[in-house]
C-alpha cells in the first residue's frame, strides 16, 4: 500500500494493487499488539490500526484499483502477469511491477527438529492468526522455540489467553528480539528463557506430549547429560523469516541463496529492469515503520522508471 501510494504521489496514473487475501493489510492484521507507527506517525498504534491508515488512503484514491483474493501465478521478465481470482484467470501487462509479497516463516522442518510429527506444532505466525483473528486457542501448555520478537510476543499473547507458557528455548546465547520485548513479554509474565539450549526432539503420537531440551556448547553441539524433558501440548516455532520471492525467481530474477531475497545492487532493485521488490520480500525488517519508508522509495523508483510526472 505504501509503494502504491508513493507511486501515485510521484505521478503514476494507473496502479493495480493485487492482494491474495480478502482484506488489505497483510500480516499487520494479526499483529494486534501495540508498538507500530512510533516513527512514521509519531504515535503508538496496533498493527490493524497502522494498516487501516493506509487502507483508507488507498481506497480514497481513484488511481488505485484494488483487486482482492487475487493470486499471481506468473510473472515474465517483460512484466506480464497472470493471476487467479474466484471466477477468473486474468492477464495484464505492467510498465513496472513492485513485488511486496512479504515473507514466510521458517518451520521446524528447516532446522530441522527431529522426533515425531503430532498435531500441536505450529509456526508462531499461524498460532497468532488462530488466536488473534479466529479466536481459537491452540493448546493449554506451550513451549516456544526461538526468542525473536515474534516468539516473544506470542509467549505473552498465549499467557494472556491463559495458556501456561512453560519455556522459551533459544539456541544462541542472547535473545534475538528487542530488549523491551524480553522484559515486557517474558520477565513480566515469569516465563523462563533457556538460552544456549535447543529442542532436540518433539514427542507424542497424535498430539504433542513433551519436548526434549538440551544445552548446547559454543559449536551448538549438545552437552552430554544436559537433556531434560518439558511436558506440553503445544510447540510454537519462531525461528526466523524468509522473503517470499518465488515469483521473481520463476521470472528469472536473481535470488541471493543465503537470504532468498533479490540479489540486487541497491535497496528495492531486482536483476530485472522495471521489476522492484520492497518490504519483507526484499529483506526482513525489524520495524513496520522501516518497511513503510523503503516501500515509499520503491513506489518512487517505479515512477522514475516509468518516467512518470516528467
Amino acid at each position: 500500500m505504501a509503494a502504491a501510494l508513493a507511486a501515485r504521489g510521484a505521478g503514476v496514473k494507473d496502479v493495480l494493487l493485487l492482494e491474495r487475501d480478502r482484506h488489505l493489510g497483510g500480516i499487520l492484521n494479526q499483529c494486534i499488539h501495540p508498538g507500530f507507527g512510533l516513527h512514521h506517525f509519531k504515535e503508538e498504534l496496533t498493527g490493524p490500526e497502522y494498516a487501516d491508515r493506509f487502507v483508507r488512503r488507498v481506497e480514497a484514491d481513484p488511481g488505485i484499483e484494488v483487486s482482492p483474493r487475487s493470486f499471481v501465478v506468473r510473472l515474465t521478465p517483460d512484466r506480464e502477469l497472470s493471476y487467479l481470482r474466484p471466477g477468473a484467470l486474468e492477464e495484464v501487462r505492467a510498465g513496472a511491477v513492485i513485488l511486496a509479497t512479504g515473507c514466510r516463516e521458517r518451520t521446524r522442518e528447516m532446522i530441522p527438529i527431529p522426533g515425531s510429527r503430532p498435531a500441536g506444532v505450529y509456526p508462531a505466525g499461524l498460532a497468532q492468526k488462530m488466536v488473534n483473528i479466529e479466536g481459537w486457542i491452540p493448546g493449554r501448555e506451550a513451549v516456544i522455540v526461538g526468542s525473536g520478537d515474534i516468539g516473544l510476543i506470542m509467549a505473552r499473547r498465549m499467557a494472556l489467553e491463559g495458556v501456561k507458557v512453560r519455556a522459551v528455548v533459544e539456541i544462541q546465547d542472547r535473545s534475538r528480539g528487542l530488549a523491551r520485548n524480553v522484559v515486557q513479554c517474558l520477565e513480566d509474565f515469569g516465563i523462563p528463557l533457556h538460552l544456549r539450549h535447543r529442542v532436540s526432539a518433539i514427542r507424542g503420537r497424535d498430539r504433542v506430549e513433551s519436548v526434549d531440551v538440551a544445552r548446547v556448547d559454543a559449536d551448538l553441539r549438545d552437552v552430554p547429560g544436559s537433556a531434560f524433558s518439558i511436558p506440553c501440548d503445544t510447540v510454537l516455532v519462531s525461528v526466523g523469516l524468509i522473503p517470499e520471492n518465488e515469483l521473481l525467481e520463476a521470472a528469472g530474477g536473481a535470488i541471493d541463496p543465503a537470504t532468498n531475497g533479490p540479489a540486487a545492487p541497491a535497496v528495492n532493485l531486482t536483476s530485472l529492469p522495471g521489476v522492484f521488490a520492497c518490504g519483507n520480500a526484499f529483506k526482513v525488517y525489524d520495524l513496520a515503520d522501516s518497511v513503510t519508508r523503503d516501500s515509499e522509495l520503491a513506489g518512487r523508483l517505479a515512477a522514475g522508471y516509468l518516467g512518470a510526472g516528467a
Binding site: 503430532p118 498435531a119 500441536g120 486457542i137 493448546g139
Partner: peptide, 9 residues
C-alpha cells in the same frame, strides 16, 4: 486425539 484447537472463544 490429534485435534488442533483446544477451545473456541
Amino acid at each position: 486425539g490429534s485435534e488442533l484447537v483446544k477451545e473456541e472463544r
